[in-house]
Simulated scan of single mutants.
Amino acid sequence: MAYSGEPILVEDLLFKPKHSLIDQSLHSTMGATTTNGDGFGIGWYGEGAEPALFKGTEPAWNDRNLREIAGQIRTPLFFAHVRASTGSPVQRSNCHPFRRGRWLWMHNGALRGFHDVRRDLVTAIDPGLFPDLEGSTDSETLFYLALTFGLTDDPLAAVARAVGFVEDVGRAHQVENPVQMTVATTDGESMWIFRYSSERQSRSLFFSTEIDKLRALHPEVEVLYHLGDETRFVVSEPLRDLPGAWNEVPESCAALVRNGADELREFQPISPV
């Protein structure tokens, strides 16, 4: 889940919605797995120069510290992730979001055949970035490849080149359909989201309808009057069953989310050769 808008208490995002992310960690209805209990993480922007992270290896629904701090953090931009491991160890460094400088990154999905292609992918990371690679996941590796290909300058092109590179390497190793991903990344001001898979059957991803339109559709829903007009949610699964509230990100698409008009465009990998 990603949130951008007026500063809001984290507990209002994580715990209070009817089908909150905490509920989804136990009862996912659209994910690859029903239970996502291999750790969690939140990232938010506050007073510091860089975003803060809080991660744990316990299931999100069972972490009392998460519930404690969620009632004390108020932020205008927030990332949250519950993890179901695709093979890498359950450890703090493997929990999302990942951070470098002011950038946060979350990934849902997998780089297939990662065990076989990992060396080729990791050795392609810029030597100046490599020392900051902490964990052993395909998700963090994809983040650092995107950084290598220019994420901080042109996020859309950088992710396209990173995905194109992963597909090139995967196919060289006879890996079918190397990439399965929904991704969210941010520099603290704008947010970029991606939905793509090599087989064109990507995991689910939704963005929220503009708040003023939702108020017109559902004047009876009080919580909508406490959200600013620039509020945006990006979620793997809708947080509550509210007709007209959620829009599926189309297959093979990317979007830029920021104050003012959002942009949705086709996403195609770029071979960086």
Rank of each mutant, 00 (worst) to 15 (best):
A80E: 01
V82W: 04
A84E: 07
T86C: 13
T86H: 12
T86K: 07
S88W: 04
V90G: 10
V90H: 05
Q91K: 12
R92S: 12
R92M: 12
S93E: 14
S93L: 10
N94D: 06
N94R: 07
C95H: 06
H96Y: 08
H96E: 11
P97T: 08
P97H: 03
F98D: 01
F98L: 11
F98V: 11
R99S: 07
R99I: 09
G101F: 07
R102V: 08
W103Y: 13
W103M: 05
W105T: 05
M106H: 02
N108M: 10
G109N: 06
G109D: 11
L111T: 15
L111Y: 09
L111S: 05
R112G: 10
G113Y: 02
G113F: 04
G113C: 07
F114S: 00
F114D: 00
D116G: 10
D116T: 15
V117C: 11
R118L: 05
L121M: 04
V122T: 11
T123K: 14
I125N: 03
D126M: 03
G128Y: 01
F130K: 15
F130I: 14
P131K: 15
P131L: 03
D132G: 04
D132Y: 10
D132Q: 11
L133F: 04
L133M: 05
L133Q: 08
E134H: 03
E134M: 15
E134F: 00
G135F: 06
T137V: 09
T137W: 04
E140Y: 06
E140D: 05
F143N: 00
Y144S: 04
Y144V: 01
L145E: 00
L145Y: 01
L145C: 04
L145K: 02
A146L: 08
T148W: 06
F149Y: 14
G150A: 03
L151F: 00
T152H: 09
T152F: 03
D153Q: 14
D153W: 07
D153H: 15
L156D: 12
A157K: 13
V159E: 00
A160W: 10
R161P: 06
R161K: 15
A162C: 03
G164F: 06
G164M: 05
F165A: 11
E167K: 13
D168Y: 10
V169R: 01
G170N: 03
A172Y: 09
E176T: 14
E176I: 12
N177E: 11
N177D: 15
P178M: 03
P178Y: 08
P178E: 07
T182L: 01
V183T: 14
T185E: 02
T185Q: 03
D187F: 04
D187K: 09
D187L: 07
D187P: 09
G188N: 02
E189I: 10
S190C: 04
S190H: 06
W192M: 08
I193P: 00
R195Q: 09
R195G: 13
S197D: 09
S197W: 02
E199W: 03
Q201P: 00
Q201M: 12
S202Q: 13
S202R: 04
S202W: 09
R203H: 08
L205G: 12
L205Y: 02
F206D: 07
F206M: 14
T209F: 02
T209W: 01
E210N: 14
D212H: 11
D212I: 10
D212V: 15
K213Y: 12
